[in-house]
């Protein structure tokens, strides 16, 4: 009895305290850097507060055009990725067909070859194919289409996995019941399956939309150097122009877009547990 009382008295929660290293790491390397970005977006290179940057950034050059093109590519990529990933995830979520998840691993394993190399191989492959079939190179003639192809290829696993996780939780009996009660496959899909997978779709959309906006390497390779997205701008501000204040402003713009999509995601997922996007 004494032991129990002693344990209850001690306010120290040993197991909860295990998250302290995690907490310190995240604060130092994730939270603090984000506040630094906010700080640098409001100052000039001397460290004085300076708000004109915001106006200058968006009036100089084709910033709005770039942002528009980024959205165009990101939205197209997201839609195509989900259209391809949805049936794949649906089939893989059938436990009879995909025992022990190994087919899911098969879709992720190509990532062991770095995406810079894979994108290069994809570019050469697509170009050779188009050269032989239609006598032109896809990336040279249609750089935006080429970019979308590259993005879809690279981010397909990020669309498959959240959908797959959501579909595992789906109640398969409802589908069978609907079919047995005489609903045709289209009705079963639109009235039963689709509503159950909305959180997965939203999660897959965020998982592909975000990286698409920043993936300047794919835009550069698959767009034949002609496609410039927000990621390209940030990269050039950091590495070529060395203007961290401008890069901070553009980063904040991206964070703002991400924030909006998170609000949208939250709106579609009621329960907290549905938002988990764990891959394996």
């Amino acid at each position: 009895m004494e032991e129990v009382a002693r344990r209850q008295r001690s306010r120290f929660n040993f197991r909860a305290s295990l998250s302290i290293p995690f907490f310190v790491f995240m604060v130092f390397f994730v939270v603090v850097p984000l506040f630094l970005i906010v700080y640098f977006s409001l100052t000039d290179d001397q460290g004085h507060f300076y708000f004109d940057n915001w106006r200058l950034i968006f009036t100089a050059g084709d910033k709005w055009k770039t942002i528009g093109l980024t959205f165009e590519i990101a939205i197209l990529t997201t839609i195509i990725c989900i259209l391809i990933a949805y049936p794949i995830a649906f089939i893989l979520s059938n436990k009879k067909f995909n025992k022990n998840k190994i087919l899911v691993y098969f879709f992720v394993l190509p990532m062991w070859v770095n995406f810079v190399v894979r994108t290069m191989a994809l570019r050469d492959m697509v170009n050779e194919m188009f050269e032989n079939l239609f006598n032109f190179q896809l990336t040279a003639k249609y750089p935006v289409a080429g970019t979308v192809v590259g993005m879809v290829y690279d981010y397909l696993p990020f669309a498959i996995l959240p959908l797959y996780n959501q579909m595992l939780k789906m109640d398969k009996n409802q589908i069978e019941a609907a079919a047995d009660l005489g609903a045709n496959p289209f009705i079963v899909f639109f009235k039963v399956i689709l509503p159950m997978t909305v959180p997965g779709i939203i999660s897959a959309a965020t998982m592909t939309f975000m990286p698409t906006m920043s993936s300047y390497v794919v835009a550069e390779q698959m767009g034949n150097g002609k496609v410039s997205i927000i990621g390209t701008l940030i990269e050039s501000y950091v590495n070529t122009i060395h203007d961290k204040n401008a890069a901070s402003i553009l980063s904040l713009v991206m964070l703002f877009i991400i924030g909006i999509s998170l609000v949208v995601e939250k709106f579609f997922t009621k329960k907290d547990e549905d938002r988990k996007v764990g891959i394996w």
Binding site: P33, T206, M213, S215, I234, K244, S248, S251, M254, V277
Partner: peptide, 28 residues
């Protein structure tokens, strides 16, 4: 709060994560 913090790098664009780290290490 802990779970929210955990979610940040997942949803954040990689380039923003990378740039913010660079600012922390090099500028600060």
């Amino acid at each position: 709060a802990l779970q929210f913090m955990n979610q940040i790098p997942i949803v954040n664009a990689e380039i923003v994560t990378a740039f913010s780290l660079l600012v922390l290490f090099v500028s600060i």
